[in-house]
């Protein structure tokens, strides 16, 4: 019987998990443990709703509402000295509850602290662009759109950035296979040679374990080369490749191993 594979989550899965295995948690601590984070959280809480906040691995994580993001980041930049947006992207939770989780990684250079601002959006919902606040969001939002299909409202140039403009599908969604779909498999052939060339060029060989030692059309076994297209029996004569032909080469000094000099001291 073929194993059932869910269509909405094509990520590789552990083939065996102990049925009593309970995954441990990375410890979370309360925000009050850290004075600076506590003060920052107070300042944010005074103006915006914060759903959850904790410290994990030396960084504060706060969950806010999706529509507050511009305000929160503006407050953090102008009043709390979080002057840099290091990173932003999304996490795909479509298989679980049809949502995306967006995170913004903020850095304060004066306080030497990092905060991760997060919120959830529904599938198909757009986020508010923070490109006006941080120019770096220009490219990260484009990357997020490219990889997940999440659009950003108010972005000046919402186009794909890493994949070609005419690409189909959003590669980092869990429903997108690692090795690409039908469109991806023939993308370059269709574009350069046209669909009718598919039969001539043939499908991609995606099996990494493929070794066809009876193939003399494309690859040659080093030291056992045969003319192209010869049927390989396995009893080929050893045919060592020299740099130069036996009879010497016109106008070029014959290379011999004896006359070469080996440099064994790399520092010389």
């Amino acid at each position: 019987m073929r194993a059932y594979k869910p269509k909405d989550d094509l990520q590789a899965k552990a083939y065996y998990t102990d049925r009593y295995y309970v995954a441990p948690q990375v410890p979370k601590s309360a925000v009050e443990d850290d004075e600076i984070f506590a003060a920052d959280l107070e300042a944010i809480k005074a103006k915006f709703e914060v759903k959850e906040a904790y410290i994990q691995v030396e960084q504060m994580v706060i969950y806010i509402n999706a529509h507050d993001i511009y305000g929160v980041l503006e407050l953090m930049r102008d009043e709390l000295e979080y002057t840099q947006l290091s990173e932003m992207s999304a996490i795909d939770w479509l298989a679980k509850d049809d949502t995306f989780e967006i995170f913004y990684q903020m850095l304060s250079m004066t306080k030497r602290k990092r905060i991760r601002v997060k919120y959830f959006i529904k599938n198909g919902q757009a986020v508010d662009s923070v490109e006006k606040l941080f120019r770096s969001a220009d490219w990260s939002e484009r990357e997020m759109f490219d990889m997940f299909g999440i659009e950003a409202n108010g972005h000046p140039f919402m186009k794909r950035i890493l994949m070609p403009y005419d690409w189909q599908g959003y590669p980092l969604r869990k429903s997108y296979p690692l090795q690409g779909d039908e469109f991806a498999a023939w993308y370059e052939v269709d574009k350069i040679y046209g669909k009718e060339a598919r039969d001539i060029i043939g499908p991609e060989i995606r099996d990494t374990a493929t070794v066809d030692r009876y193939d003399s059309e494309r690859f040659a076994r080093l030291g056992f080369e045969v003319p192209k297209g010869t049927k390989i029996t396995g009893n080929e004569e050893r045919n060592p490749q020299e740099y130069q032909e036996e009879g010497g080469v016109f106008l070029i000094k014959k290379y011999t191993k004896e006359s070469s000099k080996v440099i064994d001291d790399p520092q010389r």
Binding site: Q25, V26, K28, Q56, V57, Q59, E87, R114
Partner: peptide, 14 residues
């Protein structure tokens, strides 16, 4: 064969 299983959580390290 199976790989290590780190705890549930997230981390950003620069």
């Amino acid at each position: 064969t199976q790989g290590m299983r780190p705890p549930v959580g997230e981390v950003y390290v620069a």
